Simulated scan of single mutants.
Amino acid sequence: MLAKANRITRGADYRATVRRGIRFTDANTVTYVRSNPDSQVVRFGFIAGKSVGTAPRRNLVRRRLKAAAYEMLPRLEPGMDVVIRALPASAQVEWATLHEEISRAVSRITSRGNLRR
């Protein structure tokens, strides 16, 4: 489970990351990344809208995304905000598939080097 320090909790931070961050699109997720000079840790946020399914299905998808993000924490540099949006197809895929997509997005983030400020 992600510690409270590693979670985006304010709507303004979600909006800033989605609007001004770099976007990585995959089959089941869209990952937005933004450098946050005010933060000393990596922070994650998750979006699973009603198009993903019923509340239990959305919560399952969100828990899977959180578990994948927790494993990616050591690979990211402090001061990054990452928002992962679950697409409707994510409700039907296994955890391993979501984990692979998040891992691929993190690899693209780390290989990209400097992010926009």
Rank of each mutant, 00 (worst) to 15 (best):
Q92P: 05
R20L: 11
D81F: 03
Y14E: 03
D26H: 15
R43N: 04
I8F: 05
K66E: 00
Y14R: 00
I47V: 15
F46P: 01
V52I: 01
D26V: 04
G113V: 08
R34Y: 04
G45N: 02
R19S: 10
A67F: 01
T97N: 04
M1S: 09
K66N: 00
T25F: 02
D13W: 02
R116P: 06
V82Q: 12
R19A: 15
R58K: 06
T29A: 05
V83P: 13
L2G: 06
R112M: 13
T110P: 04
D13G: 01
A5G: 13
Y32H: 15
G49K: 08
K66H: 02
A68C: 12
Y14I: 00
P74A: 07
R104Q: 14
R104D: 15
G45W: 01
K50C: 06
E94C: 09
T17A: 06
T54I: 11
R62E: 07
I84V: 13
V52C: 02
R63C: 02
I22P: 00
A27P: 00
I84C: 02
F44R: 01
R64H: 15
P56V: 11
T9G: 07
V82C: 14
R117V: 11
R85G: 04
R10M: 01
V18M: 09
L73D: 08
P37H: 13
I102Y: 07
G11F: 02
N114R: 14
G53S: 04
S111F: 00
